[in-house]
C-alpha cells in the first residue's frame, strides 16, 4: 500500500506485566479519519498512546511518514493528542495554551501571534484569548484543546474520547465541527471511542478492537451491514444472535425452526430485521416501548428473549399477550464463530 502513512508492525504493548496488545498490525492512510472502536479495556487507548510515544512498545515497530519512530521520544514525534480530560494548562490563558508549543520552538513573536490567532479562529474561539480554561465551558475547553494541538501542524492528530465529557447536544455539534476541521486541515486523525454511533458518523474507516486484537476493520457502511463476528455484530446493533443447527436456530433455552439451512455457524438479526405481526412463531410480549418511527418489543420465545421492531401502523400489543413473528432469511446476517 503506497498511501500508508502510519504503520504499526507486530507491535506488542505491555501494561505492567500483562500484555495489553499482542502483535498488532495496522496501517493508517494519509488524511483519513480512522476510529479505534471498542469497549473499555480493549487496547484502543493503549494503541493510541503507543502511536503518540507515551508508551514504548515491548516489541515491533512504528513508522510515521516513512520514518521509523519506534525509539523517538514523544516530544520529538510531531504528533498531536487531544486528551479526554483536555489536559489544558490551568495557569495559562487560552492564547498562551495554544501558543505553548510554538513558544517552545522559539519562533518569532509575530509568527507565534499569527498562528495562535489563526488556531483560535479555526475552532471558533476568536476573542477568548484572555480567558483561563477554568472560565470556559466544556465545549470551549474542547475546542481550545483541539486548537492547541492543531497549531503545531501535527503529522497525526490523536483524539482520546474527546466528546465523552460533553452533553448530548454539544457532542453532536462537536462531531460536525471535527469533520469540518479535518476537511479544512487535511490532518490524519486517529479517533478513540467506545461509542459506535460516534464512530459510524465520523470515521472513514473503523478499527473494531477486542482484547487487544483487531476484530474487524472496514468502512462504517461495511461494518454496519456486514459484521463478521458475534462481537462485531453485537457492537453494530445486531441484538438477536443465535447458533445454527441444521435448519434450526438454537440457544440454551430452546430451538426454533427457521425453514432454511444456513451455511454459517451463527446468525444475527437486528430488531428491525425481525418481522412482526405475522409469521410461524409466537412470542409473549415482555416489554414494549414507543420509539417514534417504530415500536420496540421484547418477546419471550422458545429461544429466550427476542428483540423486534414493529411498524408503527400495527396495533399495539399489550404486555403478556402473544405476537407472531418470523426470523426471515433475507435479513439474517451470517457470522463466523
Amino acid at each position: 500500500m503506497s498511501d500508508t502513512f502510519v504503520q504499526l508492525s507486530d507491535v506488542t504493548l505491555m501494561y505492567g506485566k500483562s500484555v495489553a496488545v499482542p502483535d498488532l498490525d495496522l496501517s493508517i492512510r494519509e488524511g483519513e479519519l480512522i476510529c479505534l472502536l471498542g469497549p473499555s479495556g480493549c487496547g484502543k487507548t493503549t494503541t493510541m498512546r503507543a502511536i503518540a510515544g507515551l508508551l514504548d512498545p515491548a516489541s515491533g515497530s512504528i513508522h510515521i511518514d516513512g520514518r521509523d519512530v519506534t525509539r523517538v521520544p514523544a516530544n520529538k514525534r510531531g504528533i498531536g493528542l487531544v486528551f479526554q480530560s483536555y489536559a489544558l494548562f490551568p495557569h495559562l490563558n487560552a492564547f498562551e495554551n495554544v501558543a505553548f508549543g510554538l513558544r517552545l520552538q522559539k519562533l518569532p513573536e509575530a509568527e507565534i501571534r499569527e498562528r495562535t490567532e489563526a488556531g483560535l479562529a479555526t475552532v471558533g474561539l476568536t476573542g477568548y484569548d484572555k480567558r483561563k480554561p477554568a472560565e470556559m465551558s466544556g465545549g470551549q475547553q474542547q475546542r481550545l484543546a483541539l486548537a492547541r494541538s492543531l497549531v503545531m501542524k501535527p503529522k497525526v492528530l490523536l483524539l482520546d474520547e474527546p466528546l465523552s465529557n460533553l452533553d448530548a447536544r454539544l457532542r453532536l455539534e462537536m462531531r460536525t465541527e471535527l469533520q469540518r476541521v479535518q476537511k479544512e486541515t487535511g490532518v490524519t486523525m486517529v479517533f478513540v471511542t467506545h461509542d459506535q454511533a460516534e464512530a459510524l458518523a465520523l470515521a472513514d474507516r473503523i478499527v473494531l478492537m477486542k482484547e487487544g486484537k483487531i476484530e474487524q476493520l472496514g468502512t462504517p457502511a461495511d461494518l454496519y451491514a456486514r459484521p463478521e463476528t458475534a462481537f462485531a455484530a453485537e457492537f453494530m446493533g445486531f441484538e438477536n444472535i443465535f447458533r445454527v443447527e441444521g435448519t434450526k436456530a438454537v440457544t440454551d433455552s430452546g430451538a426454533l425452526e427457521l425453514g432454511f439451512a444456513p451455511a454459517s455457524p451463527l446468525l444475527a438479526w437486528r430488531p428491525d430485521g425481525v418481522s412482526v405481526g405475522s409469521g410461524p412463531h409466537q412470542g409473549r410480549v415482555l416489554a414494549t416501548s414507543f420509539a417514534g418511527a417504530h415500536r420496540e418489543y421484547v418477546l419471550d420465545t422458545a429461544l429466550g428473549p427476542v428483540k423486534a421492531d414493529a411498524a408503527i401502523e400495527l396495533p399495539e400489543v399489550a404486555i403478556g399477550e402473544t405476537l407472531s413473528f418470523d426470523l426471515p432469511e433475507a435479513t439474517a446476517r451470517p457470522l463466523s464463530a
Binding site: 503518540a52 507515551l54 514523544a74 480530560s85 489536559a87 489544558l88 505553548f100 508549543g101 492547541r148 503545531m152
Partner: peptide, 27 residues
C-alpha cells in the same frame, strides 16, 4: 494536577524537565 497535563506538554515538545518547570511548578 492530572498527569495528562504533563503528557500534553511533552507532546507539544517539552522535555520531561521542561514539562515539570513549565507546567507542574507554576501550578
Amino acid at each position: 494536577l492530572r498527569a495528562d497535563m504533563e503528557e500534553a506538554a511533552v507532546l507539544l515538545g517539552c522535555s520531561r524537565l521542561q514539562a515539570f518547570t513549565k507546567v507542574v511548578l507554576p501550578n
